[in-house]
Amino acid sequence: MPDEDHSAAEDWLEAELKDTLDEDYEIELEDAVLSMKIREIYREAHGPSIPRPEYFHALLHLQSELIRLQDWVVHNREKVVVIFEGRDSAGKGGVIKRITQRLNPRVVRTVALPAPSDREKTQWYFQRYVPHLPAGGEIVLFDRSWYNRAGVERVMGFASEDQVQDFFHDVPEFERMLVRSGIRLVKYWFSITDEEQQMRFLIRIHDPLKQWKLSPMDLQSRVRWEQYTKAKEEMLARTNIPEAPWYIVPGNDKKRARLNCIDHLLGLFPYGDVPQEDVSLTERVFNPDYERAVLPPELYVPPKY
């Protein structure tokens, strides 16, 4: 390769790396748009977190391993379901975002279902979740799941106690059925303290980029903290089965929670390198008689920036 071509390639790779890091910084800004007062209180409550360069270095390494896991799942036609549960603002969405950030959305998809419709309320409880289960070569991440019945539906009175007890009776066998069908089922509970949730709710109230995350239901979860705690403890005790155990992720430190969860998830699978087709860039066919059409300027997005 001529020196000038090699230099151009290096410049392009450097630009691509900067774009990648810019994307990471954009995501990290979601934690940074705070009033100075709340930022000061938050830092006092937490102390120093993992240094940003160390965090990004670890995150990029783990994300490269997630790509290997993805390729292994596709190659072996594996079926993977990962459930993320936890209190409101516990960090479920943050870790899901980092897991999916560099993966193929045709292989890895996130399911976050809204409240059930009137029709769905008359169905078998698990019915609306079944269509979202993976086929071979797919990974599905549930941002909340059928465990809504043991948590928010129970605490807020959307399900009767008989329905909750039926759920506890049915869910172990439902999950055993999934495992017997070849699905690898992983369940995470993100755990934060009372004080941490209150701080994160305050951040959401004062951060215009996060206010949409705070719903009246979230505010009720603050009022009913102890009820949620009791419901969580019973849920974990009655649904922690050998075929699909629960894993608890301490979530007060968001960055460490993300890294620890992704590292643990990778450790659950015997993935490795799989055969890859060689990819090469072929030469473009050049037609000397072709002239590129000049398009009307009104078709272009205005260059405001």
Results as ranks from 00 to 15, higher is better:
P2H: 11
W12P: 00
L17A: 14
E23F: 07
D24C: 13
Y25A: 14
E30L: 15
D31H: 11
V33Y: 14
I38D: 13
E40K: 15
H46E: 08
P48Q: 11
I50N: 04
E54T: 10
F56E: 10
A58T: 12
H61K: 15
H61A: 12
L62F: 04
Q63D: 07
Q63H: 07
L66S: 04
L69W: 04
Q70F: 07
V73I: 15
V74A: 05
V82R: 03
I83V: 15
E85W: 09
S89V: 08
G91R: 03
G94F: 04
I96E: 03
I96C: 06
N104L: 08
N104G: 04
N104K: 11
V107F: 01
V107R: 01
T110N: 03
V111P: 03
P114T: 04
A115W: 02
R119D: 10
K121Q: 13
Q123C: 05
Y125P: 00
Y125G: 02
Y125E: 09
Q127M: 13
Y129N: 07
V130K: 07
H132M: 01
G137Q: 02
Y147V: 00
N148F: 00
R149T: 02
V152D: 00
E153S: 00
R154A: 01
R154V: 05
R154Q: 05
V155M: 03
G157Q: 04
A159P: 01
S160P: 01
D162A: 12
D162H: 04
D170C: 01
P172K: 11
P172W: 08
E173W: 07
R176S: 02
S181P: 06
G182V: 09
G182M: 10
K187A: 03
W189D: 08
T193R: 09
T193E: 11
D194N: 14
E195P: 03
E195G: 10
E196T: 14
M199K: 08
L202C: 05
D207Y: 05
L209A: 12
L214F: 09
S215V: 12
P216K: 07
M217T: 08
L219G: 04
L219Y: 08
Q220E: 14
Q220M: 09
R224I: 03
Y228T: 06
T229L: 13
A231W: 13
A231G: 10
E233S: 11
E233D: 15
E234Q: 15
T239E: 06
T239L: 08
N240E: 12
G251H: 06
K254T: 12
K254S: 04
N260I: 06
C261F: 02
L266I: 09
L268W: 05
V274A: 10
Q276A: 14
D278E: 15
S280H: 14
S280W: 15
S280V: 10
E283M: 11
Y290Q: 08
R292A: 11
A293C: 07
P296M: 10
P302Y: 10
Y305N: 14
Y305G: 13
